[in-house]
């Protein structure tokens, strides 16, 4: 149970990082932290219920996160090539 609370705290920190940091890589790390928090919760629940499914799900999350990191970082590089910056505030073309 304590681990779940820890996961909640980590998740909140990760979300705050996504919201507050302008550096795309840092914000991305926030996303990773949120994913890991979810993983922690899954593993903790798996432990509580004595089932392996939580762990397997956490494993899948890791795989998906790895794929996501690959694409995400590629996008950041492409962004950097185009704009010479990785600030999240810079691309504001969608401003209404």
């Amino acid at each position: 149970m304590n681990y779940v609370i820890l996961a909640a705290i980590l998740f909140s920190i990760g979300s705050a990082a996504v919201l507050l940091r302008r550096n795309a890589i840092v914000a991305f790390m926030g996303v990773e932290l949120m994913l890991n928090a979810a993983n922690l919760a899954l593993v903790a629940f798996s432990r509580m219920f004595g089932e392996l499914d939580g762990q397997i799900m956490a494993f899948f999350v890791m795989v998906v996160a790895a794929a996501e990191v690959v694409v995400g970082l590629a996008i950041i590089i492409a962004l950097f090539r185009a704009r010479q910056t990785i600030s999240l505030d810079e691309p504001a073309e969608l401003k209404g």
Binding site: Y3, V43, A44, S46, F59
Partner: peptide, 10 residues
């Protein structure tokens, strides 16, 4: 933490 929670593989 994972190891502590009985998930050494993870």
């Amino acid at each position: 933490a994972y190891v502590g929670l009985g998930a050494p593989f993870l």
